[in-house]
Design a protein around this nucleic acid. Structure first.
Lengths: 137, 137
DNA sequence: CTGTATCCTTAGGGATACTG
DNA sequence: CAGTATCCCTAAGGATACAG
C-alpha cells in the first residue's frame, strides 16, 4: 500500500496536506503518538474519542502509506507491533500545536488549561522543540 | 444554525478543532479567504479542487455556525453576499501556514516554491502577521 | 494481541435542475 | 447570483465476529 500522488485534488500545499490529513481521525492518532507516546494498536483504541478497530486499521495503513508513520515488530514481544513516527510525522508537531492553541483559545475546548495554553502560544517554538525531542523513534 | 458543543467527541483541544475543521473542504475555503481574498460564493467555486455547490453551501453554513466566518449583504449589490472571516477565523492563519510548510517541505506539493517556503518556515511569525494584516473584514 | 472481515447504517459528495 | 433540492452512488464508520 503506497500513497498515489495522482489522487491529489490540486498541487496546492494546503490541499495536498488535507488530502492526507483532512479527516477526523488521522491527526488524533498522531496526537496520541506525540503527546502521550502511544505506540501500540490497543493503546490507540483507549482514547476518549473511541476509534473503531476497522477505522484504526485503515488509518494506520494510510498514515504508513503516506510515510508519516512506520511499523516494526516489538523486539520484546514478536507478536506486538510498534508504530512510530517518521521524520515526516514528527514534522507535524507544529501543526498539532496550532490545533491545540486554536481549539483552546478560540473554540473553548473543555479539557484545555487556559493558563498553560496562553504560555504555549507565547513561545510556540520552545514547546514544539520540547515535544519533538521527547518523541521516541 | 448554531454549532452544538454536545457533538464534540471529547474535550481535547485537538479533537475539538478537528470536529470543526477535520474534513477535506472547510480549510480550503478559509485558505481562499486568507491567501487570495475570496469573498463571494462564485469565487470559491473556481478553485482548482472543484468544490460542488451543495458542498460549498453546506460548509459555508457550518463555518458560520462555528463562528469562523460571517456573511452580510454586499453594500454595492444587494443580491450579492460577502463572506468574511471573524476573529476566530483569522486566528486560523498560523494553522494554514503550518499546512503550507508541511505540505511543501515534507509532502512535496507540486505548486509550492521551495525557496519561498524555506524562507517562510524560517520566520513563520512574520509571515503570519503579514497575512493577517492583509485580511479584509 | 493485532488485526480482518462482515454487516449495516449514515454521511459525504458529484451532477444537475431549479428557485428567489 | 446565491443558493436549494433532488438523485444517486460511494465513502465513512459503528458493531461485532473472527482469524493468524
Amino acid at each position: 500500500m503506497t500513497f498515489d500522488p495522482d489522487q491529489r485534488r490540486s498541487g496546492c500545499p494546503v490541499s495536498c496536506s488535507l488530502d492526507l490529513l483532512g479527516d477526523k481521525w488521522s491527526l488524533l492518532i498522531v496526537r496520541d503518538m506525540v503527546f502521550v507516546h502511544k505506540r501500540y494498536f490497543k493503546e490507540f483504541l483507549t482514547s476518549d474519542e473511541g476509534i473503531a478497530t476497522n477505522i484504526l486499521t485503515d488509518r494506520l495503513g494510510k498514515l504508513e502509506a503516506a510515510g508519516i508513520i512506520s511499523k516494526r515488530p516489538d523486539p520484546d514481544n514478536g507478536r506486538q507491533v510498534i508504530y512510530t513516527l517518521t521524520d515526516k510525522g514528527v514534522a507535524l508537531v507544529p501543526l498539532l500545536v496550532e490545533l491545540v492553541c486554536w481549539g483552546a483559545l478560540y473554540d473553548n475546548a473543555p479539557d484545555a488549561d487556559a493558563d498553560i495554553v496562553r504560555s504555549i502560544s507565547k513561545d510556540k517554538q520552545r514547546f514544539v522543540n520540547k515535544l519533538t525531542n521527547a518523541i521516541q523513534r
